[in-house]
């Protein structure tokens, strides 16, 4: 669940940065920081698309409990 929140948050933060940039809400001073942050967020999101973290054995154990 924690991971889901992370990618949801990451996605929303990324969308916010994109909106701010499109609306011209970002100043030249912030630009470098925002672009760097966006790159990190894109990486997080991309990783989420192409990886899984659940463990079947753990779920089976919980089912038997």
């Amino acid at each position: 669940m924690a991971n889901e929140i992370t990618y949801t948050v990451a996605f929303e933060e990324l969308q916010q940065i994109v909106r701010d940039m499109e609306d011209g809400e970002i100043t030249v001073d912030e630009l470098a920081i925002k672009v760097k942050r966006a790159a990190e967020l894109i990486k997080v999101c991309k990783n989420k698309l192409t990886s899984t973290e659940e463990d079947v054995n753990l779920i089976l154990k919980e089912l038997e409990a």
């Binding site: 990324l14 894109i42 999101c45």
Partner: peptide, 9 residues
């Protein structure tokens, strides 16, 4: 949108 974000940014 993630890919677009890259372009838009």
């Amino acid at each position: 949108p993630v890919n677009d974000a890259r372009k838009v940014i």
